[in-house]
Structures are given as structure tokens and as C-alpha cells.
Amino acid sequence: MPVARFDEAGRLAVDAALERGEAVVLPTPSPLAYVVAAKTVSAVNRAKGRPRDQPVALWEPRFEQVAPHLALDEAERRRLGWLLGVERVTALVPLASLASLASLASDDGAPGWLAPAARFGMALLFGVAWEPLAWLLERHAPLFVSSANGAGALPAVDLRQALAGFGPEVWVLDGDALRDRARPHASTTTLRFVAGRGWEIHRRGIQDTLRANAGRSDYLADVLARADAALFRRPFARRHDGRAGRQARRSPPADRDGPVLLHGCRGRRPRHHAA
């Protein structure tokens, strides 16, 4: 399997693979796992060995490109931007309308760029911005992205696992030296915004599990309070659902496996629903 380093030759190899329409495996910052990314959904799913139309997330770190197409008020858009860019969760959020997808297909310069990450009026967004990958995202975003694993396997959290999970035609960018391998790693927590209910945990992942493992409960309340403190200068205390002053209703997360089990360099790997 071809391995690219973080040097000029590695950048050229990854850049060329994306230009050819291929999927590449990329590192993301600790404590997140590696991901597989491409310019098309079919390329991501082909690399993972699963049906070509299976849902994946849109990777567009320039949030201002996505925000106008979401059925969120201004306060919730700002909160979502913080959740994606600072907390680095994945988010499932409502689109302004299904009709808006048809208009996107004819937009000059971005034909259909959002529609492949949308199902049933909801879009799945991955917004991680990371300086070591800035050159790639500036050139190729938006990309489509999923966890770096083959069908039925667990997400890769280091180069060795990434190499084991994909065929020899898939380039892997080695980011192990840029990550803290002593920390546990896993795929992101996915949050979901539901009209009338607010934010919920859709799929458990590394962010909420790290909090649970530290003996602190209620990740959702904590992360929304931190977002509000950063954005609106609100006291760092309460859970919010996006409508000022109202507490969010709790909703059971769509994760039948319960909290994931984490691992670092050794130990058990997390149970995880791959994106």
C-alpha cells in the first residue's frame, strides 16, 4: 500500500490521487481517528468496500459555505460552527428545504456539492480544520468523508491499522508523528439537531466517552454550555437547546451499543458504528 509522508513528495502524491477521483486515508488531530476522503461519495464507499450510495459526511471547513443552506436560526448556526470547528464533532442538521438541493445542482462552481451528504432533509457535516491538512482542504474542499475502515471493521486510529484496512490502491497519509499516540482515539461523537427538541447525541464517540471516562456525566449539557460561553458570553452552567433560556429535553441517543470502549496504543478497541 502506498504511504505518503508529510513532505513535498507526499503532498504531491495525495493531491494527485484526489485529482484522479480516488479516495485517500488521512489523519485527523488527536483524539480523532483516521478518515477516508474523496471528491465523490462513490470513491469513499468503493475504498471501504460497501454500496456506492451509502451515506457519508460532507467535509467543508469553510462553514460560511454551508450555513445558508441549513434550517437553523442565526444563534444555532453560530453554535453549529463552534461545535464543528472547535469541538470537532460530526453533526446531523436539517436542510433549509429539500427544494434547495435541486437549486444547488445548478449552482455555478459547486454542482451538487451538498446533496450527496443529505438524506431525508438532513445533512451530515464533518468540519474539522487542522493546520497540517490546511493545504489539502484549501485545494480540494469540499470533500466527502467517512471513518477509515473497511465494511464491518473498526476505525483505524494509527498508520498500522489504516494500512491493514485498505487495499494497495489507496494512498495513506502518515500522520502518526503529529498525533499524541498515548491518548485514546476513536471516531467523533455525532450530534443531531431536531426541530422542537434541540440538540441530541445521535452517535456516541470519542468526545462524550472521554468525558464519561473522566467521571463526568452529561456531555451534551457540557458541550452546549461551553459553546454558549464562547459565543454568547453566557454563564458556563446550563444545557441549552438553541432557544435562549430554555432547557433541552433529554432524548436517548441512537446508539444501541452504549458508551464505546476506548484504547490507546494497547488494549481493547471501541465498539463503534462507522459513518
Rank of each mutant, 00 (worst) to 15 (best):
M1Q: 04
M1C: 06
R5K: 11
F6K: 09
F6E: 05
A9F: 08
A9Q: 09
L12G: 13
A16N: 12
L26F: 00
P27E: 10
S30H: 12
S30V: 08
S30P: 08
Y34G: 05
T40S: 15
V41G: 11
V41K: 13
A43T: 07
N45R: 05
R50S: 07
D53P: 04
Q54N: 12
P55L: 14
V56I: 00
R62N: 10
F63M: 11
Q65W: 12
Q65I: 01
P68I: 05
L70V: 02
A75S: 07
A75F: 00
V86Q: 11
E87T: 00
V93F: 10
P94F: 12
A96H: 09
L98F: 07
A102C: 02
S103A: 14
L104I: 05
D107K: 12
D107N: 08
D108G: 07
P111Q: 13
W113I: 09
W113A: 00
A115M: 06
A117R: 07
R119Q: 09
L124G: 07
F126Y: 15
V128G: 02
W130R: 08
W130G: 00
L133E: 07
L137M: 13
E138M: 05
S146W: 05
S147E: 03
A148E: 02
N149P: 01
A151Q: 01
A156M: 03
A156P: 00
A156S: 00
L163V: 11
A164P: 03
F166I: 01
G167E: 04
P168M: 09
W171Y: 10
V172E: 04
H185M: 14
S187E: 14
T189D: 07
L191S: 10
F193M: 04
V194Y: 04
G196A: 00
W199F: 01
W199C: 05
G205C: 03
G205T: 08
D208I: 01
T209W: 01
L210R: 13
V223Y: 11
L224A: 01
A225C: 12
A225T: 03
R233F: 11
R238F: 02
H240G: 15
P259F: 02
L261N: 12
L262Q: 14
P270I: 02
A274I: 06
